[in-house]
Amino acid sequence: MIATLQCTVIDCPDPTALATFYRGILGWELDAEDPSWVTLTAPNGTRIAFQEVPFHRPPRWPDPEHPQQFHLDFDVPTRADVERAHEEVVALGASFLHDSGGQRSGFRVFADPAGHPFCLCYGQTLGPAGAQ
């Protein structure tokens, strides 16, 4: 092993706003002491950081001219749970982009308020190939 992962960093125009959005999904602890570098920390120590980029150009999934660069996958247990989660992430500010349509397993793609795609996945153990 060469190193361990410190955190995942997401570029965005407003770190506090985007971290607050993801806090609404994950419930992790928010540290916004420095508004240009805001972090969320899970109980197990996993961290996501949000870095201010004033001229951020958001991806436009699935447009290859504006690639997604990365995406986050969030697990929900069942398709019924994804219905509830869908409404909750939209209420937090997400935009719905795509539904894979699976009955027992699948995913829904959303854009966060800064335009980054993320997926709500259900009934599977790996991320959806369609959102890669």
Rank of each mutant, 00 (worst) to 15 (best):
L126R: 14
P113K: 04
Q124A: 14
H56L: 11
A94T: 09
L72C: 03
Y22H: 06
L30N: 09
C12Y: 00
F96R: 09
H71R: 04
I48P: 05
Q68L: 12
L72P: 12
T125N: 12
C121N: 15
P117G: 02
G45H: 04
Q51H: 14
A111C: 02
V38A: 08
T4N: 09
Q68D: 06
R104E: 11
W37K: 00
Y122T: 11
A131F: 09
D75Y: 10
W61Q: 02
L92K: 11
L30P: 05
R104K: 10
V109L: 11
E52T: 13
G45N: 12
H98T: 06
L97S: 00
G130K: 07
T20H: 05
L97F: 04
V38Q: 08
A85E: 13
E83S: 02
V53D: 02
G93E: 09
A114F: 01
A19R: 10
R60M: 05
P15G: 06
F21T: 13
D14H: 03
F50R: 01
P67R: 06
V53W: 08
G93P: 03
F55R: 11
W61R: 01
T20P: 01
H98N: 09
V53K: 10
Y22E: 01
V109G: 05
F21C: 06
P43H: 02
V109T: 15
G127D: 13
L120D: 06
Q103S: 13
P13I: 00
H66I: 07
D99T: 07
P35F: 05
Y22A: 01
S95K: 14
S95G: 10
W28R: 03
L92P: 02
D31N: 15
T8Q: 08
D99R: 09
V109E: 00
V89L: 02
T46D: 08
D99A: 00
I2K: 13
L26I: 03
P59D: 08
F50A: 00
R57V: 13
G93A: 09
L97A: 03
L126S: 14
F21S: 08
A85S: 12
D75M: 12
Q6S: 14
C12V: 00
F74N: 06
C7F: 14
P54R: 15
T8I: 14
E33Y: 07
P64H: 12
V109W: 08
T8D: 02
E83H: 07
G102V: 06
F70N: 05
T46R: 01
P64T: 11
A19T: 08
P35D: 09
A49R: 05
